[in-house]
Amino acid sequence: MTERTVAQALNAALDEALEAPDVVLLGEDVGVTGGVFRVSDGLFKKYGPDRVIDTPVAESGIIGAAFGMAIAGLRPIAEIQFMGFSYPAVDQIINHVGRIRNRSRHRFTAPMVIRIPYGGGIGAAEHHSESAEAMFVHTPGVKVVVPSNPYDAKGLLLAAIDDPDPVVVLEPIRVYRSIKGDVPDGHYTVPIGLAAMEHEGRDVTIIAYGAMMKEARAAAVQLEDDGVSVELIDLRSLVPFDTEMMVDSVRKTGRAVVVQEAHRSAGMASEIVAVLQEHALYHLNAPIERITGWDVVIPLRRAEKHYLPTVDQIVAAARRTLEA
């Protein structure tokens, strides 16, 4: 066990993975400088320029080339510098990466990882605070995971690298360095598709993922202090997602608050609410609440706080479910 930040845990996973000769890491500034968030710090030195590859500024090229490498037998890990810069590569992801297994009926596959720092909360420049996970969730043929802590960061990234299919790993920028935790040394995986039960409770279920777990945890603590028994679930895998844990929980508590940082309409929270009403409607004591970002371009630094979901909003939503 070593205490690590999320960024350090990801670094450890990459280091571990690169021990295998068929794994390569490629992206803008990932090599010599170790990436703009230093997630690949030290790996260029250790594995050399053929394995840790600094690419030209060309996202479609990075993903398209990684896709070709994957088909030809390597296991590429492609880094996109910020989620807003994944958009030039979306054609590759939707039209090629997610389709190849199906359109070749298993003849060709793309076992590749696409790492994307995402999310706001650091007052970054335009396009640097996006939460576009729904776009990837809505893309058939790619898996999507979102760790919220160092343990899951390493375990999910290693699981993604081992996975026979393409996996988008969304890395919450806001908690890269602000959350520390014990991380096992050596290889382990966190299974893709299983949520984590962070805290058991009876009265209300709070479901969140990624950076929003920070707000969700704080809200849970505040509610518990006031005598509300909270069940807190970290979804952590969006494709596939853990219907069973969420449904079991809501059947028990009868109330749910779903939290996402992304824009409100057609987001992951919408999907979760749909699934909960399909499987737990008759157990509900109150309408399910959604706490989300708004359908506006995420505001810049000076007004960003008006966009990001807050602890207070989550607490208030939980109270509404209890008062219903």
């Binding site: 708004w294 359908d295 506006v296 505001p299 000076r302 007004a303 966009y307």
Partner: peptide
């Protein structure tokens, strides 16, 4: 800085129904 209300005002020529609803939610 822009207020909470103002972040909804420049998405379209006229804010949509959903944006108006979200503007109210943001006000509490």
């Amino acid at each position: 800085p822009l207020s909470s209300d103002e972040i909804f005002e420049a998405m379209f020529a006229e804010p949509t129904t959903q944006l108006r609803e979200q503007q109210r939610l943001a006000r509490g």
